[in-house]
Design a protein around this nucleic acid. Structure first.
Length: 484
RNA sequence: GGCGCGUUCGUCUAGUGGCUUAGGACGCCGCCCUCUCAAGGCGGAGACCACGGGUUCGAAUCCCGUACGCGCUACCA
């Protein structure tokens, strides 16, 4: 096995959307596979029919594809070891459960849910570990046959031999040991003939030749069951690597209640996939140096399971924001243009037409000032519409008794220039200041207020040049009317 | 309750016995740049390395215990 090429899998349950924790698990599997020139498989664990969500698989696949985490085998791609949907592998699980029953490693159980519940209640009252009492283990061959022919509902349970030590080596945590006394006779096949996760994942991982099981820490406690299963089948166990959990700010397991957990949410908010992937990769893994900015190829080449941390990591949105800015700044203007065009459709300016040339100019002056491309429409609204009002603090601080007169003269001078360049706007402004025997600031700030309505933003001459002479003049006229 | 895992600045982390008066990043604060806002540059505050014992000439680093946190404890994954 060790000499085989690594084969890893991401095995989500289709509950409706991809959780960011799931994204990280998928990513680590992907990075590991690509780094080691192995194979990455997507397998859908849809054995819980009560939790079936229509469209969830498609959603999962499209989200993974958005994040550019591609796999070599999967439900929509096929592969040598399919099908990759567990609901299509029922016969395989049944067949394997039968083998276990035959070898006395598993047994039929006809206990009612009522009996199970009361058993659990009694155990809890006595404050002892709640576990199945092996009641049906001693059923005779005849009884089983009889019950089966009667059509009684049944499950198949794993027969756990007590008094043993179950040890396994976790690649991230080292040796972990459990007593088999605390391992329950887990249901392997449910009444509805579907397997439980425990059976299905062991059978599939073996049949699909998975070499490394990289999954969340929430699975660590049930790994002994899986180890027992591998042994019962006489199979070699894969390498286990249990990833630390992603946490809320209060250090509980990352949940919906405390913010966004769906990858889609981040996508919709305008986060770049490069940033989300970069960020999530750093939650629990480090190359050991000071590098924080990674593109996907750098992640692939430096990723190693050996450097995955043991403790949970709080999902800190501030750092994600920073990474988003960093990745945004690495984009070319042509890429930004494409993004801006697509955001334009969803903005309140969707009805307006802009040339590439115009948008490119806006991008040029705004890209250093935004964390998200769509913010160009918010922070730079004055490139798309006239300011409806003027920032109060700005008016108070920058607008004085002389401002209207100054702007009026500036407008008159600009009027004379055929088609002003950036330099024309600047030189004219200096002339105006000189004329009034005042500092440039006394022209610049009222002017900025006039054309943008706000106190901050790109260089004033850039703004004027971009919106053009006509709008510059009309906005000056408007502010004079409104503020005097 | 039982079992398991974890615990270095607010957060993500470096650190694998002496190089550490614990390094970096995000965030925060200040300065510079500057027409403003950003970006950028420079600097600052911020961790008695959960606590208590040991081992050692020497421990954030090794061992034991305690506390706290989290996970699991389903015919859910």
């Amino acid at each position: 096995m060790i000499n085989d090429i690594p084969r890893v899998r991401f095995a989500p349950s289709p509950t409706g959307y991809l959780h960011v924790g799931g994204l990280r698990t998928a990513l680590y599997n992907y990075l590991f596979a690509r780094n080691r020139k192995g194979k990455f498989i997507l397998r859908i664990e849809d054995t819980d029919r009560n939790r079936y969500v229509p469209g969830a698989v498609e959603n999962l696949i499209s989200t993974l594809s958005w994040a550019a985490i591609d796999y070599d085998e999967g439900p929509d791609k096929g592969g040598e070891y399919g099908p990759y949907l567990q609901s299509e592998r029922l016969d395989i699980y049944k067949e394997h459960a039968d083998i276990l029953v035959k070898n006395k490693k598993a047994y039929y159980c006809f206990c009612s849910s009522e009996r199970l519940t009361s058993l659990r209640e009694v155990q809890q009252k006595q404050n002892i570990q709640s576990m199945y009492d092996k009641h049906c283990l001693d059923l005779s061959e005849e009884e089983i046959k009889h019950n089966l022919s009667e059509g009684l509902p049944y499950v198949i349970r794993l027969n756990v031999e007590h008094g043993k030590k179950i040890k396994f080596n976790d690649h991230i945590r080292g040796e972990v040991e459990f007593s088999s006394d605390v391992v329950d006779d887990q249901v392997l096949i449910k009444t509805d003939k579907y397997p439980t996760y425990h059976l299905a994942n062991v059978v599939d991982d073996h049949l699909m030749k998975i070499t490394h099981v990289i999954r969340g820490e929430e699975w660590l406690s049930s790994t002994p069951k899986h180890v027992i299963l591998y042994k019962a089948f006489g199979w070699e166990t894969p390498v286990f690597a249990h990833l630390p959990l992603l946490l809320n700010a209060d250090r509980s397991k990352l949940s919906k209640r405390q913010g966004d957990v769906a990858v889609e949410d981040y996508k919709n908010k305008g986060y770049l996939k490069e940033a989300l992937v970069n960020f999530v990769a750093l939650l629990g893994w480090t190359a050991g140096d000071d590098k924080e900015y990674y593109d996907i190829d750098e992640l692939i080449s430096s990723f190693s399971l050996d450097r995955v941390n043991k403790s949970g990591a709080v999902f800190n949105i501030e750092k994600l924001n920073w990474l988003n800015e960093e990745h945004l700044r690495k984009k070319t203007d042509a890429e930004l243009l494409q993004m801006l065009r697509s955001e334009l459709k969803d903005s309140r300016y969707s009805g307006q037409e802009y040339t590439d040339e115009y948008l490119l100019k806006v991008i040029g002056v705004m890209k250093e000032r935004v964390s998200f491309i769509k913010e160009i429409f918010e922070k730079g609204f004055y490139f798309f519409e006239e300011p409806a009002s003027y920032e109060e603090a700005g008016v108070k601080k920058r607008w004085n008794i002389q401002s209207a007169e100054i702007l009026k003269q500036y407008a008159e001078k600009i009027e004379q220039v055929g088609s002003p360049t950036k330099e024309d706007y600047e030189n004219t402004l200096k002339d105006t200041a000189t004329h009034f025997n005042t500092g440039n600031g006394n022209v610049i700030h009222p002017l900025r207020l006039a054309v943008s309505g706000v106190g901050g933003g790109p260089g004033i001459f850039d703004i004027l040049y971009i919106i053009g002479k006509e709008k510059t003049l009309s906005r000056i006229e408007t502010i004079i009317k409104k503020l005097t």
